[in-house]
Amino acid sequence: MAGSALRRLMAEYKQLTLNPPEGILAGPINEENFFEWEALITGPEGTCFEGGIFPAKLIFPPDYPLSPPKMQFICEMFHPNIYADGRVCISILHAPGDDPMGYESSAERWSPVQSVEKILLSVVSMLAEPNDESGANVDAAKMWREDREQFNKIAERLVRRTLGLPPP
C-alpha cells in the first residue's frame, strides 16, 4: 500500500516540478520521506494577502490518495478558514465521512482525483475569498465580515512578516 502512495507522490512531485503552477512551490522536505511536504504559497494578487510568501506543511497519510493529506501553515496566519495553529479547513481536505463543521456536501470532499496542485490552488483561492460561513477562526471570520479595514491591516502585517520586513 505504501508503495503505491509513494509512487503517486513521486509522480505528483515530478509533475509539479516540470509544470509549476503560478505562485506555488511544493516538494518533499527531504527526499527520504515523501510523506511530508513543504509548500510556499504566494498571496494572490489584488487581495490583502498580496505579496506575502506563506510556508505550509503537507502531511500525507499512508493510504494517499484514498485519504486526504493534512495541511498546516507554519507561519502566523489570520484567516477565517485557517485555525489558530495554522491548520487549513477547506472541504476538499476532508474525507467524505467526517464533517467537522457539519455542513459540507460530499460533492466538495476529497476524492483521489484531487492532487497537491489542486489543493494548493484551492488554498490560494481560499486566501483570496474567505468563506466566512465555516469559521475555523471565528475571530477572523467576524472581523472579515464586520471590520474589513482592521482585517486588511492584520493581513498586511502578516505579509510583511513573511517577507522578513519590519511592521509598517
Binding site: D63, S67, S106, A107, S111, P112, V113
Partner: peptide, 17 residues
C-alpha cells in the same frame, strides 16, 4: 485494484462522484 481500495471507503466514482 485501485477501485477496490476506493470502494472500501466510498462507493462513488472518484471523478464524477
Amino acid at each position: 485494484a485501485c477501485l477496490r481500495l476506493w470502494f472500501q471507503r466510498q462507493q462513488t466514482c472518484p471523478t464524477c462522484r
